[in-house]
């Protein structure tokens, strides 16, 4: 399943400093929920400092996801992660 993942607000620094990624998710028995994607991103796309992205099976409280972790991902979805940073 092909989807589009976007990082912003500083979160892209953890992902090779690239904002937009086209991602091909491998086929699996059950449907992909957002929570699965988070773990998949951590294992496959994340380049550095995983503790700044995930905390206990969900994104760290400073990162915005525009829905819940139980969202069922559909093909060609666009999923955006934006980091909030202190300061400024």
């Amino acid at each position: 399943m092909e989807i589009n993942v976007e990082f912003g607000g500083g979160a892209e620094l953890l992902f090779d400093n690239k904002k937009v990624h086209d991602v091909l998710l491998p086929h699996k028995e059950k449907e992909w929920i957002l929570g699965d994607l988070l773990v998949w991103l951590k294992d496959n796309l994340l380049k550095e400092r995983p503790e700044l992205f995930l905390q206990d099976e969900s994104v760290r409280p400073g990162i915005l996801v525009l829905d819940t972790v139980n969202y069922v991902i559909k093909p060609n979805d666009r999923i955006i992660f934006i980091s909030t940073l202190h300061g400024g």
């Binding site: 912003g8 607000g9 500083g10 620094l13 980091s83 940073l85 202190h86 300061g87 400024g88």
Partner: peptide, 8 residues
Amino acid sequence: FSTECVFA
């Protein structure tokens, strides 16, 4: 600009 201060 979204880089955390290098000293923060």
